[in-house]
Design a protein around this nucleic acid. Structure first.
Lengths: 233, 233, 233, 233
DNA sequence: AATGAATGAGCATTCATTCAT
DNA sequence: CATGAATGAATGCTCATTCAT
């Protein structure tokens, strides 16, 4: 869309002047959307914080809606980059689960809950397109974890009687619910503690019941039988 | 002030004329708020759908915000009445878990998810008072389940190393996430299937690990030791 | 306008039930108009304070405007009754001036400044008819004093080179200005002190200059001449 | 913020486009406020008369209230500029009194009396801040005259037994009352005639009675005594 | 006589968006 | 490229007034 004329990169603010502008606008827009939500965020506030005129924003983004989509896209992309690289480097589904949980909690807390709620429920009030964009991004975001789950399931490390999607929903849903509760009541969240507890419980839910409890229970009864036989000898 | 002339109740239209109006307005308002969210819902649309003037709405409700609060209150109250009565009648935490999950999924699906998202994330855009009202209602709504959890934990049926709050968040969070995904992608939800699967997985997460895996694992090593000793004899 | 069926008088609340109602409404309306001014006064507040429905007010008064006119009429009539009786009983324009000033200050202060400002400047925003009603009432109200002035002028007690109207404007205008200033700045007004000072200054302005200063000055020069002649003798 | 490109002043249309707009809006707003009073004046009427949209008005003024305050400020400032410069140039309190009276009458008549009543009594219906703004402006407006009065009193030209404030109230109050009467009855006002008469009467009120009447009266009685003594010789 | 209920007509204010310069 | 200026289209809310009962 926007013409990208690559020039010599100068430090972190590299790129054409117009590329810098786009970045600046996205930066501030993310702040404002996060603070106020879509409806209450105003282009005029963004312009003011940037020290430019409102019209400038519309030079680079066709509409408030488009700008917001770009912001959300950027947010997910930032998160994705980390995850896609790091998750595969971790060995063992158990460790991956813990990593993904910790990372997600951290992301959500960093951005307040602003973008989070934008993504969670405001999208619906805006647009069909908006909603499906978010759905796409979300799918992409959870892809590394879904892949890890698939691998673990195929190797019998986690139970196979439950759809992966359901597992994913449990993992991410739990986190979102936790954060909402804490934020509404203004409680601080101890990321490490919550990540440990949560990955612990969720792990119990995911491991193949046949590989743990049930198998062990069967083992116990076998042993009991054996003991019985020994005694009877 | 308002004379309450009790007449024979005839279905949903019983009560004073003004009581009927209040009910009508709440009914339509719930629809509109659910469809559009708080900001995009307009009093004028509600009036139009009702076939009355906007002013009539303001005769019965002081403000859009107040009307919305009343709508949410009504929604929760409807749900609460069922739960408070029925949950205690069910025996066994396992069955209670399944019941609560099935009921919650049904409630959410019935209302679109409109009110759900209103409650989940829009509150913040409105008011502190609004937010704390919702927090209260939510607490009340999950109270029966929380009580059941507490009883189960005290009798050692479920693990005690994890805060109840976290369990609750897992249960409700999972459901909300599931619904969001299904609705965004327009997939139908098989309530019974999902309820079974979900309560199954969540159950694995909640049962005392010390009463199952870990205790059994310890048992196994004891047996192994015993066997060793027997062999050495 | 309103049918006045005279029945047996019962104390201060005498009259038909409808006459009592009219009186009650006027009483409350005066309060509300005085507190809020015409525009900000609402019929609904009056109804509430009276504990009746808004419609009741409109049963007795055709419109808010009409009600307000009636209120003002009543206010002036109350003041007039006193003045018309008492002013003629006082002897001497000087004493009459003092009496009128003191009475007027007291009236205005009693009613806050509410009705005063209604009369002073809000009338204009309402209606031509309203304005001329007020003008009439005002003329009637100042009539006793104007009459006293006329008598005094004819007997040469006060100067005749200035229209009586101007004198009246000085007297009443001064008072209104004083009150406004004091009320805006929230200063208390010492009625007696102000009445004394004001009637004192205004008296200086009204007395025939030829009967006082100038005549005396002439007298002084005549005396000076006489003395001169005596000395020369 | 607003670039102030100074161009050659061409009459009333000089300045930036936005400066012109501000001036235009203030001009029309003064008209409308004067005609209708604060409550009945509508931003939509102003916009219509200007041939712009309502939004344009709110681009330049944050609210109706702010606009009104600006209008009143402008009105007073216009009047003040003249008075502050001219009053000190006039010699003699008597001449100053006449000048101030004439000027004030002229100002009030020019503006209908609309703004006058706005200032006189509507302030109270708007705001505490509004009221104190008006009080400030009023004080500033009468400052030159008050100063002149103080000087005159110190040099014994006018009586010192009456607070200056009371004198000021007499002067301005008289005028306001006069104008009200004339406008309500639709009588034309002959500014010069009224100014002459009024300054004449007010002058009689202000001059030191001890320097005139009373001292002379005392002188008369002394002379009378002297004559008596002479006769008795 | 009294009123519960309903409303039409308005109002100040907001904001994303456009466009000439 | 940047923006100052302007605005159309809404929106929540108020209130005097009407009228059937």
């Amino acid at each position: 869309m926007t013409k990208k004329i690559l020039t010599l990169r100068r430090g972190a603010t590299a790129g054409t002047r117009s590329e810098r502008r786009v970045r600046e606008i996205l930066h501030i827009a993310r702040e404002v959307f996060a603070e106020k939500g879509f409806e209450k965020a105003t282009t005029s506030e963004m312009a003011q914080r940037l020290g430019v005129s409102e019209a400038t924003i519309f030079t680079y983004f066709g509409s408030k809606r488009e700008l917001c989509m770009e912001v959300i896209k950027g947010w997910y992309e930032g998160m994705n980059k980390d995850l896609e690289q790091e998750v595969p480097l971790i060995t063992g589904i158990r460790a991956q689960l813990h990593f993904v949980i910790r990372k997600h909690l951290k992301y959500l807390l960093e951005e307040g809950t602003g973008l989070c709620s934008l993504v969670l429920s405001e999208g619906r009030n805006i647009d069909e397109e908006f909603m499906s964009l978010i759905a796409d991004l979300k799918r992409q975001y959870t892809a590394p974890f879904m892949h890890a789950l698939a691998v673990a399931r195929d190797s019998g490390q986690i139970r196979s009687d439950i759809p992966l999607r359901l597992m994913r929903d449990m993992v991410y849903g739990s986190m979102e619910h936790i954060l909402w509760g804490r934020i509404v009541t203004n409680h601080a969240v101890d990321i490490d503690l919550v990540a440990n507890q949560l990955s612990d419980v969720l792990w119990s839910a995911l491991i193949s019941p046949d590989r743990s409890v049930e198998r062990l229970m069967q083992f116990r009864s076998e042993v009991a039988d054996a003991l019985q036989r020994i005694k009877e000898e």
